[in-house]
């Protein structure tokens, strides 16, 4: 599984970090999403799917 983020539209709401802290962080300056792991292990799938669903700005995508 591959994760992509669109940082331009990120509002830094923090849902991804709350939901999947092993995969996402926020940069210290603007609190914009930082992808810690572009190809997380399959065990992270439920958490990443949740992060996609809970991101208010819809900037996270999960590729097969």
């Amino acid at each position: 599984m591959k994760v992509v983020v669109e940082r331009d539209q990120c509002i830094g709401a923090g849902m991804c970090v709350l939901t999947a802290p092993a995969v996402f962080d926020q940069d210290p300056d603007e609190a914009v999403v930082v992808l810690l792991d572009e190809q997380p292990p399959e065990t992270q799938r439920p958490a990443v799917e949740q992060a996609v669903d809970r991101c208010p700005a819809a900037v996270i995508r999960l590729l097969p």
Partner: peptide
């Protein structure tokens, strides 16, 4: 609008 949100976010939603 995003410009303003980027100035809010570090103060109110950054995990640290």
């Amino acid at each position: 609008h995003i410009r303003i949100r980027r100035n809010f976010a570090p103060q109110v939603s950054h995990p640290r």
